[in-house]
Amino acid sequence: MGTEQIISMKQVRKSYKMGSEKLNVLKGIDFEVNKGEFTAILGPSGSGKSTLMNIIGCMDTLDSGTYDLNGTPIHNTKERQLTKIRNKEIGFIFQNYHLIPTYTVMQNIIMPLLMRGKDRKTAEKECLETVEMLGLSKRLDHKPAELSGGQRQRVAIARALCSKPSLLLADEPTGALDQNSGIEVLRLFTKLHEMGNTIVMITHDMNVAGWAERTVRIVDGEMYQ
């Protein structure tokens, strides 16, 4: 297996202003993820893991350092381009699912493809296989409010997978789920990993992190491999 890097971060620093004080959230992070890896970033609340996830997900900028995502230097990229990168390279799975409540399951799932400029029919066709794999075929016309937490998270995973991204980025994917549903989702992650997907999962739960192939810790803005 080759060692093609999907994520390559070097000395990434990020700080926020809290009133008159400067809060250093990330203090020189070095982090790499190879293609096909399932990595967990484990850290307690306030450790900087959410900030790191936002930077990995191209939703926030870094103050200094370098970040290459699948060969693209994100640290030098403008917002307009970052939007395209988010759409093409990253599949987001959020703790609170972040589904659009007024859309049906299918409409939610195909959104990234629509954003890419595809028409509805093509997008739906491309998503069918994923939908079947995740057992959502009978729920396509339902609204998110009509689904259980586990089902909603599966819809979110389907949305992330459909655009065939380089990286699946999951932020506390089991945080809002009961234990059984959480395990079900984690099994699914394992399956996706086995299928060759690159997954980065952020969690504060050591048990959840245990499902990953590799775990890195982040404490007080510093990373421990």
Binding site: M59, R80, T83, R86, H98, L99, M111, M115, R159
Partner: peptide, 9 residues
């Protein structure tokens, strides 16, 4: 959400 999944301005 739309912006996160690639919705442009």
């Amino acid at each position: 959400i739309l912006k996160a999944i690639g919705g442009s301005r």
